[in-house]
């Protein structure tokens, strides 16, 4: 007993400290909701924070898969836009579940921009249904080129930035159509030729695809009119078009599959042979 009293006399303050702290913590845990919750499942709070961080890191590892699925989604959305451009003036197809145009999402595996004749290579080819003379677009805004050669798994595309490029284009809400060519080695600007000079046009007008060819459906946005003039003695405008898409840094492209391309081509060939 004496020992206990002596012990208490010597360490009384420390024991008192411990007792008081225990009392305080008992009070804290019993009467404060937050602390009680944390005390009861503090491991859960820690685990939740940890798994949140883990998720953040792991998200990077499947970015590629996510990109692929986003591209497929985009393809569907652009198909819908193209279809809706037609809804007003088109007899429904025999099988309305199948659109006339389907998009094949691809990744651009190589590209040049600084030569006079530029080409791109896509990472999909014959096996995925790509054929030559199909159009290639970057999104609803902006065309990329036309498929030229295909192999089993790759396809070569004539870029817009090519001296032979000639794409049938029109100006939105105006009459007339002309062809888009690349003359001036500027990867952001192209020239629209043979719009008759009696048509009214204005700077800032939107240039769209005309839909006369089998490659591009009508209404894909190409660019804006930057400047225009009439070359003396000529009968048509010389229009500089600022492209919507920047071909120098595109990574993804969609190949347009036109279900009726062969039909239209055959018909037009018959006419030509007469």
């Amino acid at each position: 007993m004496y020992n206990v009293i002596q012990l208490f006399a010597k360490y009384g303050a420390h024991i008192l400290f411990i007792i008081l702290e225990v009392v305080c913590f008992a009070l804290i845990i019993n009467y404060n909701k937050t602390q009680k919750d944390i005390f009861l499942n503090s491991s859960n709070v820690f685990a939740a924070k940890l798994s949140e961080q883990q998720n953040k890191i792991l998200q990077f590892t499947n970015l590629k898969a996510q990109n692929d699925s986003l591209m497929r989604e985009n393809a569907t959305l652009i198909e819908n836009i193209i279809t809706s451009e037609y809804l007003t003036d088109k007899i429904p197809a025999a099988d309305s579940l199948l659109n006339q145009y389907t998009l094949i999402p691809t990744i651009i595996s190589s590209t040049t921009i600084h030569k006079r004749n530029n080409y791109l290579t896509l990472n999909k080819g014959y096996r995925e249904g790509i054929r030559s003379d199909m159009g290639v677009i970057a999104s609803h805004k902006g065309i990329v080129g036309i498929v030229r050669n295909i192999s089993e798994n790759y396809s070569q595309v004539i870029s817009l930035l090519h001296s032979q490029t000639k794409i049938s284009c029109a100006i939105k809400n105006r009459m007339g159509h002309g062809s888009l060519v690349w003359k001036n080695m500027d990867p952001l600007r192209m020239t629209l030729e043979s719009i008759p000079k009696h048509e009214t046009i204005a700077i800032g007008d939107t240039v769209i695809t005309s839909g006369y060819s089998t490659m591009f459906p009508k209404g894909i946005l190409v660019g804006k009119i930057e400047t225009y003039n009439v070359i003396p003695g000529s009968n048509s405008y010389n229009i500089t078009v600022k492209l919507f898409n920047d071909l120098t840094n595109i990574k993804y492209a969609y190949v347009i599959q036109n279900r009726f391309a062969a039909e239209q081509a055959t018909l037009e060939k018959e006419v030509a042979n007469e």
Binding site: A13, E21, V23, C24, F25, L27, I28, Y31, N32, Q35
Partner: peptide, 13 residues
């Protein structure tokens, strides 16, 4: 309840 008490007792110690 208890938070200030626990802290202040610690500080006093």
């Amino acid at each position: 309840v208890g938070i200030h008490a626990a802290t202040l007792v610690f500080t006093a110690y």
